[in-house]
Design a protein around this nucleic acid. Structure first.
Lengths: 331, 331
DNA sequence: CCCACCCATGGAAGCGCTTCCACCACAAGG
DNA sequence: CCTTGTGGTGGAAGCGCTTCCATGGGTGGG
């Protein structure tokens, strides 16, 4: 039990000011650190606030400062199902943790591919303090009014059209292909992500370049980041190009799906076909054989993006996080 | 591109009122549906709002109505690491989706086991519209002041001390043990969750009861829901009771960890030892062999809890969701 | 010794919304 | 015809905070 006088009104800034013997204006300045305030008052006010268990009213503050009370994670995709993607869950969790530290909430929203206006509408909502974009489309970005541009920061497997934080998946794809080739593989196929995603196209381009350099035939089939599609894509690959000796999937989920399908089909992994993924999700380590993959520092990326949004930092150039190779048994 | 006059102030209720030729008071009443308003005004105001693209300022509304702007998902645990648990991620995602539909944000907070006061402080934060509790401790619940009780709803693998939504893991554990016994297993060990969790104790009790009924020796070691601990716990079990022929873990992550450890140790699964989990996470289907487990409808549970919080529904008795057995190859 | 300057402070005006209350017109009952 | 309702409406007072602006008491330079 806690010693709470049970019928007390919760403390407001006015109470704190009275307790500290200053005006609300001064109390506000002392507490927020904005504007002048002597050290003496600063500590006195802080003490009063602690004493009274004062917690600032986020809505009132937002109203007065004309800033939003929450940031939204907006995810582009064909269906609302993208919100169920574990990748999105990681972004959301990291964003929420970052935001919680500054006492702002987080929402998720699906940005339908077919309705580019949604993002514009979101950007006009004054309740929103910032937007973390995941995989937005160009048309959607174009739909946000100039005036609202300042409030937006971007992130993710997504665009480079706005300041963003992203993993360098071009380099990762290249390194992975090189590793497979170094291991003696000569027929390296790729399961991509959805083709409308710029990041898919970048990774695909890197794959094509690496394949050309190693003189291996390009073999790519489109995927959608799901395990189910990974399985069917692997089957498709083996049917079309039976001599394939390695499969690289954009996304561990797809890679694990492919791995499962191959094993069920009696293919030896990595004996007959090597399998590699992308993201290094927890389960990559648990599969049998362990999945070779490259890391995707989603948490760092999401945290960086959320921090940038919350600080309203000046838009810089896209920031690329490095991805490192994780060697396990599947390749 | 969207046709937005680029330098326009966003519409406020005052603009809507002027456009509709009524006062702000009337506009507010017409829009919210609270208080009297003639049908004519109601439609006129609605039209004006649509025309102007008016979206109510959530913070201002929250300030005026003294209601919160976001709901927080509060997770009890030893370390802040609990926030990384995939289970929590699922709860968070589902809550965020539900909340987004009503335009409220969501935060996550860690409730340290050693600081029961944190929840009380949370409950006093006027910015918070509701709290979804995950695994709160009794002392923490006791620390929330009476006055704030009305704002709380609870959920999860957690408590039954407040109105809650939970999976019936007692029944699930019983069913799983019975299934293992029916399959001829006689030495069924269990890897539990953290012992301070009521849900762990309930599942453990169910296991003990089922074991007693089937005359099998009780063998339980504590776990923590992680894959790593699952692996070490399995090793511990096999060292202490070498004749164990089945392991049931509370949580698929632990089960998969155990499965991996057993295979690496050269144990045949399910030949020598059967393995079963709990939760039916995506990866349960992808492991080799596929993991036998029981479902945990987290999304439904979280959605139900979030809805209850948002609607401020009268606290009812704890609601139990059924768990169904998913038979795969590991048991 | 005075003036200019500066820093710390308090008063007060909002931010956009809800809601209490007084008000008005009109209908029905005495 | 006057009273007593009644439902629709507008005025205005906040909700708790930030911030502009004016004010005051200090310091240093002239």
């Amino acid at each position: 039990m806690v010693a709470h006088p049970s019928r007390r009104r919760e403390a407001t800034l006015e109470d704190v000011a009275r307790e500290a013997g200053v005006s609300v204006a001064t109390a506000s300045r002392a507490l927020t650190g904005r504007g002048p305030a002597s050290n003496a008052t600063r500590t006195r006010v802080a003490a009063a606030a602690r004493e009274l268990g004062y917690v600032p009213h986020a809505a009132a503050r937002a109203l007065a400062t004309r800033s939003g009370t929450h940031v939204v994670v907006a995810v582009g995709g064909h269906t609302a199902h993208v919100l169920d993607d574990p990748y999105v869950a990681r972004v959301l969790t990291a964003t929420a943790r970052t935001a919680a530290a500054r006492d702002v909430g987080v929402s998720v929203r699906w940005l339908p591919l077919h309705d580019p206006g949604e993002l514009g509408r979101l950007a006009e909502d004054r309740g929103i303090g910032g937007i973390v974009l995941v995989n937005p489309t160009r048309p959607a970005l174009a739909a946000v009014p100039r005036a609202a541009r300042g409030r937006i920061a971007a992130i993710g497997i997504g665009t480079r059209d706005v300041p963003s934080f992203d993993v360098d998946n071009g380099a990762a794809a290249t390194r992975l292909v090189e590793h497979l080739v170094a291991g003696g593989r000569r027929r390296v196929a790729m399961i991509t992500g959805p083709l409308w995603l710029p990041c898919t196209r970048r990774a695909l381009a890197a794959y094509h370049r690496a394949a050309a350099e190693s003189a291996i035939p390009p073999r790519a089939v489109p995927g959608d980041f799901t395990a189910a599609r990974g399985g069917s894509a692997a089957a498709e690959i083996m049917a079309r190009w039976p001599d394939t000796d390695a499969i690289f999937a954009l996304g561990d989920l797809s890679a694990l799906g492919a791995l499962g399908a191959l094993r069920r089909a009696g293919v030896d992994v990595p004996g007959d076909v090597a399998v590699a993924g992308f993201d290094d999700i927890d389960f990559a380590a648990l599969s049998d054989p362990g999945l070779t993959t490259t890391t995707n520092p989603v948490e760092a990326i999401a945290t960086g993006a959320a921090t940038a949004v919350l600080d309203r930092r000046a838009p810089g150039p896209p920031t690329l996080y490095p991805s490192t190779l994780v060697l396990r048994d599947s390749a």
